[in-house]
Amino acid sequence: MEKAKNDIHKTGYGTYVLIWLILVGLTIATVTASGFNLGDFTLIIALLIAAIKSGFVINIFMHIKFEDKIFKVFLGLAFMTLLAVFVLTSFDVFFR
């Protein structure tokens, strides 16, 4: 039951460097993708890549993947709140 100190998850240096390489790669990908004229898809692809990048930052750099469940619940609730606000506003913005 006791949570010993050395129980704390230590992410290796290599993992962080790997995530950094992925993030750099995704940045290059999003800049390249913006060069093509894909109409409405341009924004969707850009936001999709941004979402993937934030997934890596939140899970590994910000350590959420290794935290207790309560952190994930907090984050999930905040995300759902933000999503609800965006979706509800979208109805007004797009269908006015």
């Binding site: 913006s34 341009t42 936001l47 890549i49 941004a50 990048k53």
Partner: peptide, 21 residues
Amino acid sequence: LYWHLVDLIWIFLFPLFYLMR
């Protein structure tokens, strides 16, 4: 955590302002 959040916000600011070609 704070520093990463600042990075996170920029990840969204960047495509929305700079990549609208």
